[in-house]
Amino acid sequence: MVDNLGLIGQRTLEHVSIVGVAVGIAILTGVPIGIAITQSKRAADIVLGIASVIVTIPSVALFGLMIPILSTIGQGVGYLPAVIAVLLYSQLPIIRNTYVAITNVDPAMREAAKGLGMTTMQRLMWVEIPLAVPVVMVGVRVAVVMNIGITAIAAYIGAGGLGTFISRGISQTDPRQLITGAIAVSVLAIVSDYFLLFVQKKLTPPQSTVID
C-alpha cells in the first residue's frame, strides 16, 4: 500500500484534473446560461428541460453514445469524452441553481437597486450575482460530488483516474486494488464535499442562509 502511495497520488491527480477542468468549464458556461434564462420563462423551461434529460442518461450509456460521435475526430475514448460527460452532467445543478438564485432575489432589493438608479447590468453585477454566489456554490458542490463518481466509471473508457484501481481490481479479482480504489474515490468525494461546503459557508454572508 505504502509503495503504491505514489500511484494513488497520480491517479488522484488525474481524477481531480478531469473533474476540475470539466466543472470549471461548466461554471463558465452554466452561470451565464443560468443568468440569461432568467429573462424568459419559456427559455428557462426548455434549457432546464434539456439539462434534466441529460442528467437522466446513465453515464455508462452517455460514454457509449459519445464514442461513435467522438470517434470521427479520433477521440472516442480517453480524457476528452470523460471531460465532456462531466461537463454535460454539471450543467443542470449549476444552471438550475444560478437561475433559482437570481429569480429568488427579494423583489424589494431589486426595487431598492432600481431606486438607487442602477442599470440592469449594474444591478446584476452588484446585487443579484453577489447574492446568488452561495447558491451557485451549492450547485457546484453537487456537480463535483456527482462527477467524482462518474469519473470513476470513466476509467472504463480509458480516462484514467482512481476508477482504474477498481476496474483492475474487478478484472483481476484483486481485493487490494478493489478496496484501495473504492476507499480512495470515496475519500476524495467526501473530502471535496466538506471542502466545498467550507468554501460555500465562507462565501455566504452571515445574515443569509442557504438551504441545500
Partner: peptide, 29 residues
C-alpha cells in the same frame, strides 16, 4: 445491458456498445 456496453467498448465494437447504451438511456428516461 452493461454486458453489451462494456464488451462493446473492450472489443471496440460500436454496434454492440450502442445495442446496450441506447436501451439503457431510453430505460432511464
Amino acid at each position: 445491458l452493461g454486458e453489451l456496453i462494456f464488451t462493446g467498448i473492450a472489443l471496440d465494437n460500436i454496434e454492440m456498445m450502442l445495442a446496450g447504451a441506447i436501451p439503457v438511456a431510453l430505460l432511464a428516461m
